[in-house]
Design a protein around this nucleic acid. Structure first.
Lengths: 189, 189
DNA sequence: CAGAATTTTCAGTAATTACTGAAATCACAA
DNA sequence: TTGTGATTTCAGTAATTACTGAAAATTCTG
């Protein structure tokens, strides 16, 4: 790692490590981390130089990141090389990551579970297994469609909701009471 | 894989695959999947037999799962062997997983970011990097403490919230209006 | 306490995944 | 179109991670 300040180097190394713990290869994590903290787009040679990777490794890493929609490719005027940068908005990054993981892993899992649950089986062991799969399916489906749903919310609303934390319970109780009142009115007329 | 019905075999293989995509080794994923759909606790030999792993591999896998608090060890009367089972409550499983990942990966990342952000730097590149790290830190902290917070909610409330999905926005708006009214009253007195 | 049953450890090996350098391909300018 | 710079591909190799079998340790029983 040449020409990287200790601050940035530390960040990059940590992200490489984290990446590998979440099933993303170390190199890819490091490239992303570097782009994330860089104040200008970088080309592949600069990345290879900074992280001390081979040019081809950087090429593969960038391709991977593009497939995750985590980097933007751009051209600088008067320069034939491709420059890469990470989107600035951290919420956007978070959402993109969640969307991609959902598409790649969660959706196929749901589909597998759905198929498994509707299969006709006779064995009691299989019957039990199906119950368990159903429970897992329902949970994943609930969480996953909640995710999709809140993606639609604008960022401020999302932040507001998060900051509310557990206090959201009070709000839900309030909602319950309002509903009873409304329901009462309706049934009275 | 001996004695496993196609239904269960399929489930187990899928989970092994998913595990490895999320940074959990294939074997561990398969052992967990098997325990999850099993209608009774299994001992290590049964697992080794069913999945066709060596006994020592199963031992290591179970140790790993115990460290994630994802399996329960129990003894059957009149049997010296150790039997393992997966907790039944899928929400509990989900929460445990989230807690462990937070403890192992998110918290150390937050700590690294906090340190990086309070470091004194002069280089403009470092200053910029610090801004980015601050943004990431704040997002992770917000989401992570929201997670901790909603863990406290009982399951029904959580399900209610999830089912509400994007409609939660309406509720937040309502809350906003109530606050204004309340605030108005206060300032009037 | 001796011995049997069970579990764990760990060094060696196998399998997988990551990385490189060289060659091929591509993209553009003259 | 040809040449040059840039990027990608891919076969070979390196590094890492996973797995096994044998031995050690642990746990229980008589």
């Amino acid at each position: 790692m040449k020409n990287l300040s200790p601050l940035i180097q530390n960040f990059v190394l940590h992200f490489g490590e984290m990446g590998s713990r979440w099933g993303i290869n170390r190199t890819v994590g490091q490239i992303y981390a570097l782009l994330y903290v860089s104040d200008r787009p970088l080309n592949a040679d600069e990345i290879a130089e900074a992280l001390d990777f081979s040019r081809s490794n950087v090429s593969m890493g960038l391709k991977e990141l593009e497939s995750w929609r985590l980097v933007r490719l751009q051209h600088l005027p008067g320069d034939r090389r491709e420059f890469f940068s990470a989107p600035e908005d951290v919420w956007m990054i978070f959402k993109t990551l969640a969307e991609e993981r959902k598409k790649r892993e969660v959706d196929p899992t749901l589909s597998m579970l759905r198929d498994a649950v509707i299969t006709e089986v006779n064995d009691p062991g299989d019957k039990f297994a199906q119950q368990r799969m159903k429970a897992m399916h329902d949970l994943i489906e609930l969480v996953s469609s909640w995710f999709t749903d809140v993606h639609k919310l604008d960022q401020d609303t999302l932040v507001q909701l998060m900051k509310l934390g557990a206090k959201v319970q009070k709000l839900l109780e309030l909602k319950g009471r309002l509903k009873i009142v409304a329901g009462g009115k309706k049934s009275a007329t």
